[in-house]
């Protein structure tokens, strides 16, 4: 490193942040890839049904299909409902 670089490089190295973020997003996207093609549409439909009763945003619903064994997959549905506001 030259003296000039030394004074210039006050910022923290960021490669490790890049690696962590990539590991998370790549793992997430791989999981989605392995799901059947209908999964995104299924999620939209579920979202729509729930919205008839409570207003929630897209990121409050997570739909995941996990292959447990060769002949068994589990569909996991997670809905975070907003806090009930009592009158």
């Amino acid at each position: 490193m030259s003296l000039l670089d030394y004074f210039r490089s006050s910022a923290k190295p960021t490669a490790n942040i890049a690696k962590e973020r990539l590991q998370i997003i790549v793992a997430h996207e791989r999981k989605q890839r392995h799901g059947p093609d209908y999964l995104p549409q299924l999620k939209q439909d579920i979202l729509e049904v729930i919205r008839r009763y409570v207003s929630i945003s897209e990121d409050q619903v997570s739909v995941q299909l996990e292959q447990k064994e060769d002949d068994l997959s589990v569909l996991e549905l997670n809905v975070a409902l907003p806090e009930e506001r009592s009158a």
């Binding site: 490193m1 490089s9 190295p13 960021t14 490669a15 490790n16 690696k19 990539l22 590991q23 790549v26």
Partner: peptide, 16 residues
């Protein structure tokens, strides 16, 4: 840049 931690290393990319 990799030595300075500014860029992903070969091993990082290989691992991912």
């Amino acid at each position: 840049r990799v030595a300075k931690g500014e860029m992903l290393s070969v091993d990082d990319v290989k691992e991912i």
